[in-house]
Design a protein around this nucleic acid. Structure first.
Lengths: 148, 148
DNA sequence: CTTGAACCTATAGCGACTGGAGAGTGTACC
DNA sequence: GGTACACTCTCCAGTCGCTATAGGTTCAAG
């Protein structure tokens, strides 16, 4: 393979994969990327496969997968002969988590809208925003979960 | 005021306000609570107003307000004569943030559902979960934002 | 007066990065 | 072939909002 197996500097790999340079080094430190070969001057050089792996990680991160789950998914994709039950389970767990967060956020949104709608722009003393925050009793949301 | 202005230990305040003990000390260190009086033996004692303040903070946190925003809201509620425009603006900003996250999460959810639906339980080599993660092109989501 | 729960401070850790300092390297241009 | 300068290196600190631990002190009930 001629130039297709070309080397990317860490900055080029970062641009192509859409991640930041320190993030790549961080992923390496966390074991999501195997340490790449270096130039004589100790600079990392990446091939197309590593860049693809980076894009995979980025995409999974955008989908909210935590790094340990991504580590698992990567090791699965490194062994294509196995059953994909495990990958499926990870994705389903993530879907459940996303649905949970969606519910929380939706409840949140309606309460915030209620707060904002009721504020008529007077004095703090009559401000619904402050009042709603002060009186938990009036709260619609019953989340005991962290809210993010 | 007799016993209504009663003193609470940090643990009692925590139970009543629904936060954890170290969290109270953390809020104090972050300047959201003024340092309360202490017993001779150096233990914090809180009054009803501080407990209410804690509940306010807790509720705002449940609504996802970051601590700096809560600091602002608290200082607003300490000055009830001012206009509530500022409080309104903070709440609106938070609402916008929540809506942004909701959009991201909704896009996410459909992509995860797509991934999971398409997985037919075969080998990794044909697994849609892995494949979708590897090919960002097929992605529905256009988020460049963090996904949480 | 003794026990034991609750409290104190200080510090470190979480997850997933991000930013900076200070030094070394690679490369494009003249 | 030199020089300028962007890029890269490592290491360490900071972000956010807590949470947990260690090792010591105090409070309140019996």
């Amino acid at each position: 393979m001629p130039a297709s197996h070309a080397d990317y500097s860490i900055g080029q790999a970062a641009r192509v994969a859409g991640v930041k340079v320190p993030t790549i080094r961080y992923y390496e430190a966390q074991g999501l990327l195997t340490p790449p070969p270096r130039t004589e001057g100790n600079q990392r050089r990446y091939g197309a496969a590593e860049v693809a792996r980076l894009a995979f990680i980025r995409h999974a991160r955008e989908l909210g997968f935590p790094l340990p789950a991504i580590r698992d998914l990567l090791s699965l994709s490194d062994h294509p002969d196995q059953s994909c039950d495990a990958a499926d389970a990870i994705a389903r767990a993530q879907l459940a988590e996303v649905e949970r967060r969606l519910e929380n956020l939706t409840a949140l949104k309606s309460e915030l809208e209620r707060m904002v709608d009721q504020c008529q722009g007077g004095r703090i003393a009559n401000c619904r925003v402050i009042e709603v925050l002060a009186n938990h009793d009036q709260c619609l949301a019953e989340t005991h979960n962290p809210v993010t």
